[in-house]
Design a binder for these strands. Structure first.
Lengths: 230, 230
DNA sequence: AATGAAAATTGGTCTGACAATATTATAACT
DNA sequence: AGTTATAATATTGTCAGACCAATTTTCATT
């Protein structure tokens, strides 16, 4: 592997990143204009623009045509582009993503119980009741199902873990999967949610993880079936 | 939120991504040249270049000065750029990263044992012996420690899991942490590695996970100490 | 056939101009 | 004075052409 000689553009990128760091600029802060940068860095507008565009692409800056340049408030926004491309290029196996999700959710349960984080049991129950409603009304159930699992992860009091999980979830949602979900299976899913919440309330990690494992079982069965067919 | 009118640059970006998809281009494949793109898309070189630079920034293309443009060989590596910036801007708590690492490694052990993946026990032992050597010789121990944990994750037969774990690991390595590592503690670490390998060989998940938990304990103690001081 | 110099190709940087969009200043009106 | 419509200005987007730097290709020489 050859060491890439630093192009002017890359130097400017580094200087801009440092500038942001040193001046402690925060999301939505106004940044310098192209003109100011060309003058201060003494490079052509071309180079400045290319550096700015790179930084916009990775979600560090936000360029408003005619209105200036701002620090982006990226909540993983640009990561989506990368995941999508990665998925389309390498074709990730669903099984791999489900395995990861299971690991994360089992881990979340352990964190919640071991750390004894303050947890709003009622809120979880409430979300699950909404889930129950959509099931009974034959509406789209995904929203509340996801909200329930999101809330569990969020309860771990670990923002990085939450962000990371969201990335995985985002990735997972790229994969089209037609899991047959009859009413019966959904009701069972609802009951498992409740069982998990109860286990958390009782500080019963083993039970919580066992139920979560059961909760994941149908999708693994489905995947195994799919893999056998192909 | 206003819907951003598509700039020429963004249109070109979309068309290039589609082109890659449709022609099923794979990493390291040669892509079109700037000249070809300007002619075929009938836009200025400026626009083409800015689009290409955006796609390079997110790890979709790789531009070789003088040598052409290629499909990038990205293993989610460009996510690292984003996380790094995120870390430098918002600051991440070490505790959060260590918690995630623990979750991932406990999860890896479960995957390995539950799936009964073919596993080269001897190789793991060998790596750990090299680790032992560096400890005894007072050399830098990090390399083989990391290699050991990497090998565990790799053994799960889940490439996506491995890629994401690597991202966390890289993220973690950004954080400077001065864990006091005396010879005694390192030897204990070495022994735990061996114990984990033996537990895997014996399909003893509980023991493996218990040992791994112990393995993480010193760093949690250290972090707690640090948090109390500040 | 192997080598090495010359030519052509390709991406990097510069300059200057005009267009499209957003912001600011000004003028007109109530 | 305050509001609103309009004009002026500032800022980013796109274009064209030129030259530089790195790489690849061509081809004459050995």
């Amino acid at each position: 592997m050859r060491i890439q000689k630093a192009s002017l553009k890359n130097i400017v990128i580094e200087r801009i990143k440092n500038y942001i760091s040193e001046n402690n600029l925060k999301p939505n802060d106004k940044f310098l204009t192209e003109k100011m940068l060309t003058e201060q860095l003494k490079v052509s507008r071309t180079v400045v623009r290319e550096a700015l565009i790179s930084l916009q692409a990775v979600g560090i800056l936000m360029i408003k045509p005619g209105g200036g340049i701002y620090i982006a408030d990226t909540k993983l926004g640009s990561i989506h582009t990368i995941l999508k491309h990665h998925y389309e290029t390498y074709g990730v196996k669903i099984r791999e993503l489900v395995e990861i999700r299971k690991i994360l959710e089992l881990g979340a349960l352990r964190l919640i119980i071991e750390k004894q984080v303050p947890l709003d049991i009622d809120q979880l129950k409430e979300i699950n009741e909404s889930y129950h409603q959509t099931i009974k009304n034959n509406e789209d159930t995904k929203k509340f199902d996801r909200l329930f699992h999101q809330s569990l992860i969020k309860a771990t009091d670990n923002a990085t873990f939450f962000n990371f999980s969201e990335i995985i979830h985002e990735y997972f949602s790229l994969v089209k999967i037609d899991l047959i979900e009859n009413q019966e299976a959904l009701i069972r899913s609802y009951e498992q949610h409740n069982e998990i919440v109860d286990a958390i309330r009782d500080n019963d990690l083993v039970h919580a993880q066992k139920t979560m494992t059961d909760h994941f079982e149908p999708i693994f069965t489905f995947i195994k079936q799919m893999e056998e067919e192909s």
